[in-house]
Design a protein around this nucleic acid. Sequence first.
DNA 1: CGCAGGTCCTGCACGC
DNA 2: TGCGTGCAGGACCTGC
Length: 318
Amino acid sequence: MPELPEVEVVRRGVATWAAGRPVSAVEVLDARSTRRHDGGAAAFESQLTGRRLAAPQRRGKYLWVPLAGRPDEEPADPHGQQALVVHLGMSGQLLVSTPSDPVQRHLRIRILLEDTGTGTRTAEGGSALELRFVDQRIFGGLFLDPLVPSADRPEQFLPASVAHIARDPLDPHFDPSAVHRRLRSRKTGLKRALLDQSLVSGIGNIYADEALWRARLHYARPTETLNRGESARLLTAVQDVMEDALAQGGTSFDALYVNVNGESGYFDRSLNVYGQAGRMCPRCAAEGRDSLIVKDRFMNRSSAYCPRCQPVPRRARW
DNA sequence: CGCAGGTCCTGCACGC
DNA sequence: TGCGTGCAGGACCTGC
């Protein structure tokens, strides 16, 4: 479940169902899903077993769960503490199951969680749960990584491998004017910049197209020509579209994209341009004008936009 | 065959 | 010449 709202839905599910529980067993069924772990699958299994899951965190599309020691141990100092890092890639799911649930087709990693005595009882009477990583395309993965202080706020810790990821638009410390300055200093197309996770994180192909449409900006607009008002309008549009999607449980086109309980979100019904090629632009239609959404191939992927309210700039950067 | 929601690595061009 | 940076394109996967 790729973009920020979908990852946030998963984070909330992990916070509700899994946080606080100790890991009693780990099984990696496909080593490619732990390829980013130093030492590979066997090291991942042994290093995660016996640890306790703390409160899950997120930046952009990255999710991580800081690891404490055993429940009877003091919480570790964040210096040197490790986290379980999750990236869903294109097709990853993190599911909370009971150990006896039928095995999913693309199940790659299972993490057995002990009963803490305070959790919800399951139908079988026990309350052991299982965190399952299911991933068809194996672009995603799980790995352990040390927590390091963030560059701009040293009191805030994040996994070393996430340190290069910029703050996302729903982060309380997100700084739109800093993003505007960095956009102006780039020489590229606007959508390329939006998809660059080191500039602003959490945006993928769906929300990039939706935010550009809301801000009435074309994807090939040269970033160095943006004025403050346009940047502000665009970043507000990104925040709005993400909050709207979150309120509906995220965007799901099929069973590939679900929350930890396997349920789909509904935001696909609110999309204005993504996947809407050939249909009427809703804004133009409301204004009594007819304009059809078009889809371009670009960066080896598709970009949908309305040629009337998002005109191609005179000098475009593709 | 083309297409799918993401990231990472490589190689190139450029400036110091 | 060498190095660092920014940018573009391809690689990585499976299934419909």
